[in-house]
């Protein structure tokens, strides 16, 4: 039995319809994810509108270099995944496996840098929920709000990256074992949809937590 060709489920007329249903399902999932993140972004927007100065100082306190490096890493990961999908459709399975694994590796590097950044914050006494010596020295409540939204948003994003890395590793392994071939490239495309969405979320987090730092 050729595992690289997906099995047509009995409730679909043909493979293109089955692939479309899978893609539509992922898009609906991503729509719900967008609504989930929008709640957190709204929280940030509302408090930034209320405490613009401390939010600006908070952004200036974050490490612009690490945040920017992470932006390039995630974008490069997305590039690798787009190329992996192209390679799989062109029946270049080995190259596709390599590029998918490279995408997962990019995600892993992102997580290591993010963890390093959190470690720096914690060394300064900045913990989620406004706990730590930093908030004793800076008792204005907006500082606690800024860093709690920072940990909340980047934390949930990091959870999504972690899940993405796991799925990418699994998909690369499946392709390596010839369980996903050109006929089932839509499966890699669906993984790609998730990964690109995670990338989009970061493209908003990066300016909000690293760029908007200039005094008015």
């Amino acid at each position: 039995m050729n595992l690289a060709v997906p099995k047509l489920q009995h409730h679909f007329e043909d493979l293109p319809k089955q692939a479309h249903a899978a893609r539509l399902g992922m898009w609906l999932f991503l729509a719900s994810e967008a609504l989930f993140f929008s709640g957190l972004f709204t929280l940030y927007a509302a408090y930034r509108a209320h405490y613009p100065e401390i939010f600006r100082e908070g952004v200036a306190h974050n490490d612009l270099v690490l945040g920017t490096v992470n932006t390039f890493i995630l974008l490069t990961g997305s590039l690798f995944l787009s190329l992996a999908l192209w390679a799989l459709r062109a029946a270049r399975r080995a190259l596709s496996v390599l590029l998918t694994a490279a995408t997962g590796l990019a995600g892993l590097v992102y997580l290591i840098i993010k963890a390093t950044e959190w470690a720096h914050h914690m060394a300064e006494g900045i913990f989620p929920g406004g706990r730590g010596r930093f908030f004793v020295e800076n008792p204005e409540p907006a500082w606690a709000i800024f860093y709690t939204s920072y940990y909340g948003l980047t934390g949930f994003h990091a959870i999504h990256v972690t899940v993405g890395v796991g799925i990418l590793a699994w998909t690369a392994w499946w392709m390596h074992r010839e369980r996903v071939g050109p006929a089932a490239a839509y499966k890699l495309a669906i993984v790609g949809l998730y990964w690109h969405f995670v990338d989009i979320v970061w493209l908003f987090l990066w300016p909000l937590f690293y760029l908007l730092r200039n005094p008015a």
């Binding site: 898009w27 609906l28 991503l30 729509a31 967008a34 609504l35 929008s38 709204t42 927007a45």
Partner: peptide, 17 residues
């Protein structure tokens, strides 16, 4: 789906702010 989801996001963010 791709058009409606961002519209809902925009609506939520704008009305709250």
């Amino acid at each position: 789906v791709a058009v409606v989801a961002p519209l809902f996001v925009l609506l939520l963010v704008c009305l709250t702010v």
